[in-house]
Amino acid sequence: MIFLIIKRILLGFITLFIVSIITFVGTEVLPGDACTTYLERQAFGEQLEACYRRLGLNVPAYERYVSWALNAIQGDFGYSLSGEMPIKDVLGPRIKNSLVLASAAIFIGIPIALILGIITALWRDKLPDVAISTVTIFAMTIPEFISATLLILIIAIWLEWLPGIVIVPTDVSFLELLPNIILPVVAIAMIMTAHMARMVRSSVIQVMASEYVQMAILKGVPYWKMVFKHVLPNALLPAINVVALTIAWLLGGVVVTEVVFNYPGLGRLVIESISNRDLPTVQALAIILASIYVSINLLADLLTLMLNPRLKTLQIRK
């Protein structure tokens, strides 16, 4: 068991290592380097030289990689080109804001997804299922920027219930932030909830068709007891991993939503730094976002491992 956990964590680090190489090589082989792209070829001798020196671009690539990686491990990603300040200072508040947004969406989304998924599975092909499934298909397929735009149009502009655009400084208290984040959270949660609800549905349906559920019915176990004892634990276990993947995938959607709502999170930073051709920040963002992805998946793996008696004994025996 311990061995397996350590192995998973190690694999996570290996993935991150490869990610760091990919981003480094990626920014390296694509035309232009940090200085030429940032200065948009307006730079001549002196200015360019200065920039190179500042970023240490005048040493060979692998040396730069090593020193960059070593610093990155300690949380030091170097200097942002546009803000002219340490990247970690730029990142800090942004990470916090995005985390607020994403976790609010996850905490609202997961329970709703569970309930909807279970209802649709238990009432399979009946009215509740058909109704909810139709809605989820819409919620799932419509891009975030459309649902966000529609939310703003309807709730903020026509009904004037909530602010449509987040106009707050990067550093505000949670309470001040709250009314501002309701719409973005809804926009993110919608698509995620729909995805998860569908996964839960099919997982529950699969388990409902299993021999052991048939056996429980034949044993005379009352319906709801059967659902909670025999069905759900087995149905939700495999769903954990898939849910994690969905959450991680939605990081991309968070980027778009933040732009629509002008929300000062990591997502907008992605757009800003790419528009500004601020490659060091982009590299840092890639690593940060990849680590989030890896840790969510790792968490899901460990959770599954802990909850699944089958895997547990398997490992003990080995």
């Binding site: 021999e211 052991y212 559920v213 048939q214 034949l218 044993k219 005379g220 009352p222 276990l237």
Partner: peptide, 28 residues
């Protein structure tokens, strides 16, 4: 009705399945 069946299944009539490996709930 399923309410009444629950009182008969397992109590009056019980089933022994073909493949017990599949018919025992794995998490219990």
């Amino acid at each position: 009705k399923s309410k009444d069946l629950e009182k008969i299944r397992g109590r009056k009539i019980a089933m022994i399945p073909q493949n017990a490996g599949q018919a025992l709930t794995p998490n219990l």
